[in-house]
Design a protein around this nucleic acid. Structure first.
Lengths: 337, 337
DNA sequence: TCACTCCATCGAACCGGTTCGAGGAAGCTA
DNA sequence: TAGCTTCCTCGAACCGGTTCGATGGAGTGA
């Protein structure tokens, strides 16, 4: 059931079958019909490996994502889903590549062995050797996230600085003077994880601008850590009246910690942050947050990558998104003083 | 930078390079060293497509998962993560295939075009044409889930019947007499989705056994639907004192609905169900639940698939898991009467 | 020194597609 | 009817690996 078999049964040459399928050269209607009939009868489909070998394109894109060791967040899930879906619309398959402990190994698999035509990178760090490496190689890649030097690169980013700042201003406008910042785990911050850094920056600067008293914390990606983090915050400064979080997975724990400390949200304490809407809506009261448009980001990353693949010489493009804060029910005026 | 180039620079033939790499025939130490040196210098890696074409194996497994149209649940995320990780340990890549509206199309891609050596199927239905189809073809596949006729198949399943029953018995033991069941969306139930059916069965039978008064509901996979569902439950029978849910994504909404109806969990109302632990721990009070061992299931599915790929004639194997209920904080004695 | 074995290596064929140049048949013009 | 297009089809080469059978040289024993 290969192209030769089809050719034999249709009484034509292999090349004619190929042209009939690709349409790259005209084929008479008679011949095309005959070939199509044989193909339908046998349910023939051209072998992907052979095709990839011959024309140098695998029609597959690699999605490089973080290892599962530390849990996946809902946001990552949304990225994966939307990337797969958008890719399918362009007739691309998606190959998952855990950029785990020895990220080199799986990277080599993808690029060195030519398994994919292009790649989408998640979990970008400010100084990211993966991004630099790919840029050097000229390998078609699009980052979901933005390094410290994003000029001339292909990426889809979220303006974490602005979003965190917006959260601060929202709280300051409500009269809060002492607020805390709940970041992603310390390990991620230390390794230069983009959103953790830019978010922290935006928070710190905006708070200084507004003359607020702040404390910043790192917090594990799970409910228990969130709860512990709130305990720490209230222990360090019981007068704290609000917090901003980047940590989606800890959100449930943050709420629990507040409840157990007897702080009612939003009456006694306001919570806001940068979180995908479907997770913000899961908690009670629903979280007032800058909604991470994960699906849009995944889709746009694929759009950019496909553009880059189709037009090899195209100049770099990017999207920087800064969604507005969605007012829900977790923030209110400060009752301090 | 192909095998011919390596051969030329090392002064040997292409076949010798191939044998040096695969070890399928002895190669002298001298020659091997020379070849290795050239390879290291040039950073050569054999082309995956060519290799796949030549030896008929892609070293890739397909993960067939539901379309993103309706949201992904956390459980699915855990499956994906653990499958990718386990596959990497066996040196397999994972190709994602959305089994969307026209699942045939992507299915054809995977199998017809020989993109993968084997497949793992998620979201199994009791009568699942995908499973039947693959079984007919003798294509190496492992299902995460179990059809109505699982005999002679390869699968990793969860005993939803037993788990739902365990939830019922737990509640009955606590004195609850009027309980509700919150299932996955009606569309999934109607299309024969396994966990929805078996869970409903287990619930219904166990409740009958214990002589309980029950109502069963379908609920969308999001917080708003969960909230609406609770309102409906309390409207239909205000004397309801507990519920069992299979619907992880609606959990937050269920809690919210109860809070807004003035029912305190667990004092006035008990909640339990079948939910992965990390999500059960996110809500407050933490959910007493039969923990879905998603990671273990993904890992085991890969183990089975690899076994099947390595031993083509091997007899079918399967795992049926039935984790115990983890007592957390969302259930308590009934206070009715 | 010859015959025999053993080992390392080579060349060629093959996997299943794509693509290029060539060429035959049909149609048109002179 | 010769000459020129145009249209369609064919054969061969190629992509980059793997694998089989053959071969040459070194080593061994008689």
């Amino acid at each position: 059931m290969n192209i030769g078999e089809i050719a034999r049964r249709a009484g034509v040459s292999r090349s004619t079958v190929s042209y009939a399928l690709s349409g790259k050269r005209p084929v008479s209607d008679d011949t095309r019909r005959k070939i199509q009939q044989v193909i339908d009868e046998l349910g023939y489909r051209p072998n992907a490996s052979a095709r990839a070998l011959a024309n140098g394109r695998t029609n597959t894109i690699g999605l490089v994502f973080p290892p599962a060791g530390n849990h996946y967040t809902g946001m990552q899930l949304d990225f994966i889903g939307s990337v797969v879906e958008a890719a399918a619309a362009y007739d691309y398959d998606v190959l998952l590549s855990p950029s785990g402990v020895d990220s080199d190994r799986s990277f080599q698999r993808l690029l060195g062995e030519r398994r994919v035509d292009g790649a989408i990178l998640m979990e970008i760090r400010l100084e990211d050797d993966r991004v630099d490496h790919l840029a050097e190689l000229g390998f078609p890649a699009v980052a979901i996230g933005r390094t410290a030097h994003p000029e001339g690169g292909w990426w889809v980013g979220l303006d974490h600085t602005a979003l965190a700042a917006a959260c601060v201003h929202h709280l300051a406008d409500l009269g809060h003077r002492r607020i805390a910042f709940v970041n992603r785990p310390e390990q991620l911050l230390r390794s230069g994880y983009e959103s953790a850094h830019r978010g922290l920056d935006g928070f710190t600067k905006a708070a200084a601008e507004r003359g607020l008293t702040v404390r910043t914390y790192c917090c594990g990606d799970d409910a228990a850590s969130g709860q512990a983090c709130v305990e720490q915050i209230l222990h360090d400064d019981p007068a704290t009246t609000a917090l901003v979080t980047l940590n989606e997975a800890a959100l449930g724990g943050l709420y629990r910690g507040l409840a157990q400390a007897g702080r009612h949200v939003p009456r006694d304490f306001s919570v806001t942050g940068v979180v995908a809407s479907r997770w913000a809506e899961t908690v009670t009261p629903q979280l007032t947050a800058a909604d991470v448009p994960a699906e849009e980001m995944g889709r746009r990353a694929v759009d950019l990558l496909v553009e880059r693949l189709d037009h090899p010489g195209a100049p770099p493009r990017h999207h920087l998104l800064a969604p507005p804060i969605s007012l829900r029910a977790s923030t209110g005026p400060s009752t301090a003083f």
